[in-house]
C-alpha cells in the first residue's frame, strides 16, 4: 500500500519536485506513473524509497508513515521496497550472482539461503546460465533483468521502477513489462515510472499522470 496525502517536495534553491500530490495505490495493485520529464516522477519514487523526504504532506508505505520513520530505520524500510533504475545501478566488478545477492548479504541472510534465493530470482528473469558473468558482458536488456532480479530477490511487497525500459527497444520493453505483470500476479504492489505511453496504453493497467508536480490524471483501478 502506498498513499500520498497532499505531498510537496521543494529542493534547496526553490525548485519544486512535487506540489501537493495525492493518490493511493492499494496493496497488490500495479500502476504506471507517467508525465513529461521534470513532472516529478522520479521525485515521487524517491520519496517512497526514502532517498529523499517530503517537505510537506504525508507519505505512507506498507502501513508506515515515512515522515515519522527514523533515519536508522531507513535500511529496513528499503528492504521492503525493491527499486529498479534506468541505468541498472549494477556493480561492474561483481558477477551477476553477487550483484543479485547484495540485498540478501546486506540483510544478513545465510549462505545457503542466498544461493537458493538468487537462483530462484535468476530463473524468474531467465538468466540462470549467466550467473558467473559480469554485468558489462551482458546486453542492455539482460542488465536490466539483473537489476530486476536484485530488486525482487528479497521478495519485497513493493517494487518501484524508474524508466526501466528507457534504453530498450519495443520488444524488450514489452518483455520487461510482462515480467512486472507476473510479479503483480503474485500480489506484489508495483509502481512504474515511464514515458513509454504507447506501450502502457496496451497493458490495461492503471495510469497516473503527473504534470508540474501535481496529479493531472488518474485512470483509476484497472482502467
Amino acid at each position: 500500500m502506498i498513499q500520498f496525502d497532499n505531498v510537496s517536495k521543494r529542493y534547496p534553491g526553490g525548485h519544486e519536485g512535487l506540489a501537493g500530490t495525492s493518490f493511493r495505490l492499494d496493496s497488490g495493485e500495479m500502476a504506471f506513473l507517467t508525465g513529461h520529464s521534470g513532472a516529478g516522477k522520479s521525485t515521487l519514487l524517491k520519496l517512497i524509497g526514502l532517498l529523499e523526504r517530503a517537505t510537506r504532506g504525508q507519505v505512507w508505505v506498507n502501513e508506515r508513515n515515512l515522515n515519522r520513520l527514523k533515519d536508522r530505520d531507513i535500511p529496513y524500510h528499503r528492504r521492503e521496497v525493491g527499486m529498479i533504475f534506468q541505468d541498472h545501478r549494477l556493480l561492474a566488478d561483481r558477477t551477476v550472482f553477487d550483484n543479485i545477492a547484495l540485498p540478501l548479504v546486506a540483510s544478513g541472510v545465510g549462505h545457503q539461503e542466498i544461493s537458493r534465493k538468487v537462483r530462484a530470482a535468476l530463473d524468474k528473469v531467465g538468466l540462470l546460465k549467466k550467473e558467473k558473468l559480469y554485468p558489462l558482458m551482458l546486453s542492455g536488456g539482460e542488465q536490466q533483468r539483473v537489476g530486476i532480479a536484485r530488486a525482487v530477490v528479497t521478495r519485497p511487497p513493493v517494487i518501484l521502477a524508474d524508466e526501466p525500459t528507457g534504453n530498450l527497444d519495443p520488444e524488450l520493453s514489452r518483455e520487461i513489462m510482462e515480467l512486472f505483470m507476473q510479479f503483480n500476479d503474485v500480489g506484489v504492489t508495483l509502481l512504474i515510472a515511464t514515458h513509454d505511453v504507447d506501450l502502457i496504453n496496451t497493458l490495461d493497467k492503471r495510469i497516473l499522470t503527473l504534470r508540474q508536480g501535481r496529479m493531472a490524471n488518474d485512470t483509476g483501478v484497472a482502467a
Binding site: 536508522r72 535500511p75 529496513y76 528492504r79 527499486m83 545501478r89 547484495l102 540485498p103 546486506a106 540483510s107
Partner: peptide, 16 residues
Amino acid sequence: RPEIEITKLVGATNAF
C-alpha cells in the same frame, strides 16, 4: 562510492 550508494539503496545499514 558507487558501491556504497548501491549497497545503501538495497537496504544495508550503516554498520554493514
